[in-house]
Design a protein around this nucleic acid. Structure first.
Lengths: 208, 208
DNA sequence: CAGTGAATCACCCCAAAAGGGTGATTTTTT
DNA sequence: AAAAAATCACCCTTTTGGGGTGATTCACTG
């Protein structure tokens, strides 16, 4: 049996908030149990609302949306947070997801898709707008034309894991001096002279 | 003006391959320029096919799908690779994306969605099945109940960047001894006694 | 078939860093 | 008021890191 999905909206723009509330409330199987204009306002009462899904804006007065996510999850561990915002900044997206958001939609998303995403997130899915998905996928992609050889990349990865030369040597069944040699070559190719700088360069250029 | 989207299918199961070919070919704006049962077979001729999008299976005889991606991208740098497979293993998904795949669909995806995804990937989007999106989003999420304090987490992140105690001290405007102290506490809490093990634990438990 | 890049190993040097132990003080949060 | 977090101090030894300057073997490519 499918219970009604209970939704709370946190969004500071009254027009948009009411728009969503109307839209979602009019759909069968969905119920807007409460709506607030800020997290701080919501914090006091949301526990008794017991929503299944919270639609959350990023740009909010007081506690911003990203910081609100872990607080919401603490108050309501079973509840899913779906971000609904105009912002497409990589930092914001990744922080929101790292903080426990289950989905990320931009506000140009058609209303039918929003409704669908609420259902999806409630079923344990991970809805994203296509432009967000693009950013997320790109974040996984490694640089295809790395200056480093296979072995060098492999060793750089182990350095990224915080391993010492001797640990790397053991793991790869090669001599300590060989590891040194590879690391020296990596440093030359990346134009750095320390592990920290090598890792930084590697991450910047998506070599690892 | 919208040119016809040229598609190559690489899939070892003949029935499925022909099914997709028929399905896609029958849709206006889409043209299947070639289809192969393995990458090795495709490699020789695909350069002249000049597809915009390659639909690629993971399970293939000879060169497997994941390894085929970078090779395809080398032969056809402008071409997008869309994975279409039954496999939902995290490792496979992340490796496929890291190797340059632009999207990942599972084979239970309805045909209309496949067609739509081809268009999406061609427009620079990043289509994913909902179950894949869930895994991808989950991979971003950090552990909400870390045993580490804020400062400790912050320092562990810097250790993950390969930074030395003194570099961390400078960056956080605190004393070298304070950094040591935090690191010692981190080691106790994570029950480790080296940087490498701390990073390993941290990644395993998604603390950083 | 020559040459290049990749992977392997060797030995010189020394300063810096890591890790263990055992404390104390202050600030923040609950 | 108590607990947790953040700060700093000084003891100790071993390991590691980074620079320099080589050589050898192997595989691929022109």
């Amino acid at each position: 049996m499918n219970r009604t999905i209970k939704i709370t909206i946190i969004e500071d723009d009254e027009t948009i908030r009411n728009g969503y509330a109307y839209l979602i409330g009019a759909t069968e199987g969905y119920e807007v149990v409460s709506s607030y204009s800020s997290y701080d306002e919501a914090a006091k009462k949301i526990i008794t609302d017991r929503p299944d899904v919270v639609l959350l804006d990023i740009e909010l007065p007081g506690t911003n949306g990203v910081d609100a996510i872990p607080k919401l999850k603490k108050l309501l561990p079973q509840c899913y947070v779906l971000i609904l915002t105009v912002y497409e900044s990589e930092k914001l997206i990744f922080n929101a997801l790292a903080n426990g958001a289950s989905g990320y939609l931009t506000k140009n998303t058609p209303s039918a898709k929003i409704i669908e995403s609420i259902k999806e997130v409630k079923d344990g899915g991970g809805p994203m707008s296509i432009n967000i998905a693009k950013l997320v996928i790109r974040s996984f992609q490694k640089n295809q034309e790395s200056p480093l050889s296979r072995r060098e990349t492999q060793i750089l990865e182990l350095i990224g894991d915080g391993k010492s030369r001797s640990q790397i040597a053991k793991e790869l069944f090669i001599d300590l001096e060989t590891v040194r040699s590879h690391i020296k070559n990596i440093y030359v190719k990346l134009d750095v002279n320390s592990r920290a700088d090598a890792i930084k360069m590697a991450k910047q250029n998506k070599l690892i």
